[in-house]
Amino acid sequence: GATAVSEWTEYKTADGKTYYYNNRTLESTWEKPQELK
């Protein structure tokens, strides 16, 4: 079936920290989303 993983994109900030952005909800988070675990 369809999965929600594709909504999240992993980015890195200029200082090398990783964060996650959800293209559907426009939410961003420092925590790894449940969908990616």
Rank of each mutant, 00 (worst) to 15 (best):
N22E: 01
L36E: 05
E7P: 05
K32Q: 08
Y20R: 00
Y19C: 07
A4R: 02
K37A: 14
T3R: 00
E35M: 04
E35S: 10
Y20F: 06
G16Q: 03
A2Y: 12
E7F: 06
D15K: 04
S28M: 15
N22W: 00
G1Y: 11
E31M: 08
P33T: 02
T13K: 03
E31W: 05
A2H: 13
Y11C: 07
N23Q: 08
E35K: 04
R24V: 15
N22P: 01
Y21H: 09
L26W: 09
A4M: 11
Q34W: 12
T25Q: 01
P33Y: 03
E27G: 03
K17V: 10
T3S: 12
E7T: 06
K37E: 14
K32F: 05
R24C: 09
E10P: 06
T29C: 03
G1T: 14
T3W: 10
T13E: 03
E31Q: 08
E31T: 10
T13F: 04
T3E: 13
K37V: 14
E31F: 08
V5H: 12
L36G: 05
G1I: 14
E10Y: 04
E7Q: 05
T29N: 04
E7N: 05
E27T: 06
S28V: 15
W8S: 00
N22S: 03
N23H: 15
A4V: 14
G1E: 12
T3C: 14
D15I: 03
G1Q: 13
T29D: 01
K12Q: 11
R24A: 15
T25K: 01
E27F: 04
A14N: 09
A4T: 14
G16H: 02
A4N: 12
E31H: 08
S6P: 11
T9E: 11
T18M: 05
N23F: 08
N22L: 00
T9L: 09
L36R: 02
V5P: 13
G16E: 02
E27V: 08
T18S: 10
Q34G: 10
N23D: 10
K37I: 15
W8G: 00
D15M: 05
A14F: 05
T9K: 10
T25P: 02
L26I: 02
T13S: 06
T25N: 02
R24T: 15
S28I: 15
E7V: 07
P33I: 02
Y21N: 02
K17E: 09
D15R: 03
E10V: 11
Q34H: 11
N23E: 10
Y21I: 12
A2W: 12
Y21V: 15
N22K: 00
S28F: 15
A14I: 11
E7S: 05
P33W: 03
S28N: 06
R24D: 11
E27A: 05
G16V: 00
P33N: 02
K12E: 07
Q34V: 11
N23P: 06
E7W: 08
T13I: 03
P33L: 03
T9F: 08
T3Y: 06
G1S: 13
L26T: 10
K17R: 14
K12T: 12
D15C: 07
N22V: 00
T3D: 14
T25A: 01
T29S: 10
T18R: 04
R24H: 15
W8R: 00
E7M: 05
T25E: 03
A2S: 14
K17I: 09
E7K: 03
W8L: 01
K37S: 15
A14V: 11
T18W: 05
T9S: 12
A2F: 12
K12F: 08
N22M: 00
T18L: 09
E35R: 03
A2M: 13
K12V: 14
Q34F: 10
Y20T: 00
G16W: 01
L36H: 10
T9V: 15
D15F: 05
Y21P: 01
P33F: 02
L26F: 15
S28Y: 15
T3P: 12
Y20N: 00
T25R: 01
T25S: 02
S6L: 08
G1R: 01
E10D: 03
Y21T: 09
T13H: 04
W8H: 00
S6N: 11
L26H: 15
A2I: 13
Q34I: 11
A4W: 14
T3L: 12
K37T: 13
N22D: 03
A2K: 05
R24W: 14
T18N: 05
L26S: 14
Y20K: 01
K32M: 13
K37Y: 14
E27R: 04
T9G: 06
K12N: 06
W8M: 01
T9M: 12
K17S: 06
E35C: 05
A2E: 12
Q34N: 13
V5N: 11
K12W: 06
E35F: 06
L36V: 06
T18K: 07
T25I: 01
A14E: 12
G1W: 13
G16L: 02
R24G: 09
L26V: 02
G16A: 02
T18D: 04
G16M: 02
T18I: 11
W8K: 00
S28R: 10
Y20G: 00
R24K: 15
L36P: 04
E31Y: 08
N23W: 13
T25L: 03
Y20A: 00
T3N: 13
E27S: 05
E10Q: 08
T9P: 00
T13R: 04
K32H: 04
E7I: 06
T3G: 13
W8A: 00
G16Y: 01
Q34K: 09
A2P: 11
A4C: 06
Q34R: 08
T25W: 02
E27N: 04
Y20I: 00
K12R: 13
L26Q: 15
D15A: 07
N23K: 08
A4K: 05
T18Q: 04
D15E: 09
T13D: 13
K37H: 13
N22Y: 01
L36K: 03
E27Q: 09
Q34L: 12
K32G: 03
K17M: 09
A14Y: 04
P33K: 01
Y20Q: 01
S28K: 14
Y21L: 11
N23T: 09
E31D: 11
E10M: 09
T18A: 07
K37Q: 14
K17H: 09
S6I: 09
E10K: 04
K32T: 06
W8I: 01
N23I: 08
K12M: 12
L26M: 13
T13P: 01
A2R: 03
S6M: 09
K37F: 15
Y20L: 01
Y21K: 07
A14S: 11
K12I: 13
T18P: 07
Y21R: 05
A4Y: 07
S6F: 10
A14H: 11
P33M: 02
R24Q: 15
K12P: 02
R24E: 13
G1D: 13
P33A: 01
K12A: 06
Y21S: 04
S6W: 10
S28Q: 14
Y20P: 01
T29F: 08
N23A: 07
S6Q: 11
L26K: 15
E35G: 10
T9I: 12
S28G: 12
A4P: 13
